[in-house]
Nucleic acid binder design. Sequence first.
RNA 1: GGCGACCUGGCGAAGUGGGAACGCAUCGGUCUGCAAAACCGACAUGAACCGGUUCGAUUCCGGUGGUCGCCUCCA
Length: 464
Amino acid sequence: MRLHSTLTGRDEPLVPDDDGVIGIYACGPTVYSRIHIGNARPFVVFSVLKRYLERRGMRARLVINVTDVNDKIYDAARAEGIPSTELAERCTQQYFADTDLLGLGRPDAEPLVTGCMDDIIALIADLVARDLAYAAGGDVYFRVRAFPQYGQLSGRSPDDMTDTDPGELKEDPLDFALWKGLKEGEDASWDSPWGPGRPGWHIECSAMAERELGTGFAVHGGGIDLVFPHHENEIAQSEGAHGAPFARIWMHNEMLELSDSKMSKSIGNIALLADVVQEWGADTVIAYFMQSHYRSRLPFSDERMQDAQAACRRIRNAVRALDRALDDPGEGNDAELAAAVVTARTRFFDAMDDDFGTPGAMAAIFDLVRAINQAFERGRPSEGQLQEVRLELVGLLDMLGLAGLAEAGGDSEVPAEVLDLLRRREDARAARDFAEADALRDAIAAQGFEVRDGPDGAEVVPAS
RNA sequence: GGCGACCUGGCGAAGUGGGAACGCAUCGGUCUGCAAAACCGACAUGAACCGGUUCGAUUCCGGUGGUCGCCUCCA
């Protein structure tokens, strides 16, 4: 598999770490409010990446941190009139709950800044010892000019950086804070060799990444808006402290757009993840993400969600068709369908291995879906082939975190009450009492099911 | 001002130096008491515009126009 790296601007081969595991670190949220659908993109992308690697027989370790110490948390807590630690804890729990709704499982580790204070302080001390950082007042700053490679990730030169914060205590406006001394109005702090305070914004990710994955690892990722300064600074901190490469591939997802602008808390054009999942369902949300490339900007709107929902429905219907056919399978094997399965697999893996090309992978799935439907136009395949095709389709869906599309809607899940209504409607139709039949159809709809009349009689499926 | 990205059918969205995937929508058809649903089929001789390289460019290079992102918090 190859992945595009922001550092080189090219696709780079994905190779495991020395221990054979593919270490992946993705920057998680700063917890001062509920996460929005844009925040969910990296969570989905990196969760599915890990899932794909594992389904392909590789070992992967995914780390997504939670930044629970930050200026914004102080501000938000003050506005709410509660202790900042209380707000951070509440928002952390909400973040876990909200992302759980996606049904993609949890990362292997989700470190909190507050749980890694010793690692952070040790790393800062290391940088100070190497003269890459200096204490000033109660603060500690990174000496940017002492790290010649600064700017390599974001492709800019320190000389071009003009709008920097002068900062009274800094030697150079370019320098950034590793440790911020306790200030008035801040209600949480930790002891350090430089006095009470808290970590700067970037140091925690350096510390947590190397704590969980070692000083060098395969993939470091996050939103593309983190390239500068966050990830640039992480490289400076980690490579400065260890003199060794930090992450080998820098993988950045593009932004979601709402009303033609980047979805952003500061602009206010956001849709909360929990609301979106509640309204459209986890599968629709995941399919929405998977149908676009992670490095493309992605518009968010109800129309986009409707599209994704319709696409999911198409896949669900194909699985249902397979299940229905399995109740009454045919004899022979359909050669065209068998060939389509092979083609779909090849196209799927080719797309995924080429910079995580989930849109191509989805296209391969849809091609398989069409091939399944076409096969049913021709006849009814054998039980063995039906099972093989189903296994294959569900297997591909599962690699994208979409196996849920194969689970819901089995006939066994239809309540007896609804089946009874359906039977009565069939009787009414047979008696040509269409008023009664239509009334029963409405009654079934009221139970959340949809009647589908077909050549082989009527069936009910959960309304979607 | 500096750095960078993007501009593909009605809406989204891929890949690609030589047939422009896929989804939605639309249209036609099958099915049907009706409706819906479902399924099948059709659907860009052309890829913002202008040049250049090439036997050949949507794909490479240059320019113009437009959109957006980063440079401050941001997934």
